[in-house]
Computed example of a mutant assay.
Amino acid sequence: MDLDVFVAAHQAQWARLEQLLGRGRHLTGAEADELVALYQRTSTHLSLIQSSAPDPMLTGRLTQLVARARATVTGTRRASWRDAARFFTAGFPAAVYRSRRWWIPTALLSTALGILIGWWIATHPEVQGAIAAPDHLKELTRPGGQYETYYSSHPAASFAAQVWTNNAQAAAVCLVLGAFLGLPVLWILFLNMANLGVGIGLMTSAGRLDVFLGLILPHGLLELTAVFVAAGTGLRLGWTVIDPGPRTRRAALAERGRAALGMAIGLAVVLFLSGLIEGFVTPSGLPTWARIGIGVAAEAAFLVYVFVLGGRASREGDVGDVEEADRTATLPTAA
């Protein structure tokens, strides 16, 4: 494409679009129609220049012109409480629901790995000896030892805030680093399951597995589910790099990346709730059955939220992405 000829042929249209944009809201009906038509043509011109004869200065000028025209045509929209309500009642649960084929297997396999590590440690004294000295292991697992006092060693509010911050960071890392083919996600999952397996193994060897489960289950059910959702979504994002499907890799990553970032916000709220349980319920004086019952109820509520609200929103076409008007425009591609 001869860029000089192209510019000469369409310069008048770009100048006319700039003229119409300069009038602000004082446009007649005919001028508004003209503005829309020129916006569409200029968008096409920009795409052609970017693909055939990229020129930094011209591309920058037309990009700014198209952005101004788009803002005028579509109007500006501010986030509102309605957007937040839609996110938590449709967008977030739909995104979690649609990624269920990734996070459910992730949860099952990870849990099996944690149990296997726990069994291996519990049945092999030499492995326990490699973890820590016998006196230290006894201090960890004895009644009133470090495993039990861990949840009550700090004020509940500050402990809950610390737990929430750490878990939210881990979930966000899983979501963001999933684009690196999912490899960092697998490592984070392994570390989490290894820590869980060590606790299971050591407390089982001390004959106190019931105490350990009574401490871990109240908050652990919801907390681990959130981590599994983040990890599964991160792995899905990593697989999109390999196999984007019928869309371009850029378009597929953009959609699932936006959904993943939205899920980071939703999972932060879920982990905040699990942090409250860990800070105020786990170390409380409630009977073990009551503490576990609260954890089971929180987990059940989350699953109902995902599979009922999220399933319904997904069937209505919600993919957990931002509103269509807020997405970057894309050119049509051949199937």
Rank of each mutant, 00 (worst) to 15 (best):
32 A>S: 15
228 F>K: 00
99 S>G: 06
96 V>H: 04
130 A>S: 15
120 W>N: 08
269 V>F: 08
106 T>A: 08
99 S>W: 02
162 Q>V: 07
35 L>K: 07
66 V>F: 03
46 L>T: 02
236 R>M: 12
219 H>D: 05
290 A>I: 11
310 G>Y: 10
37 A>E: 13
206 A>K: 04
113 L>Q: 00
153 S>H: 06
326 D>K: 14
218 P>Q: 02
171 A>M: 04
280 F>D: 07
230 A>Q: 02
75 G>S: 05
253 L>A: 09
78 R>H: 08
275 G>A: 10
227 V>T: 07
81 W>P: 11
92 F>A: 15
114 G>T: 08
40 Q>R: 15
29 G>Y: 03
249 R>G: 12
209 L>Y: 00
121 I>A: 07
148 E>N: 10
324 E>I: 15
53 A>E: 09
247 R>K: 07
15 A>W: 00
251 A>C: 02
141 T>Y: 05
68 R>F: 02
123 T>F: 08
302 F>M: 15
317 G>D: 05
205 S>G: 15
34 E>N: 04
41 R>A: 15
4 D>Y: 06
191 L>F: 11
124 H>W: 04
59 T>G: 11
172 A>Q: 06
147 Y>H: 11
296 V>H: 03
182 G>Y: 01
21 L>P: 12
110 S>L: 06
218 P>A: 11
195 N>D: 12
282 T>E: 03
73 V>R: 06
55 D>Q: 12
2 D>I: 06
258 R>V: 13
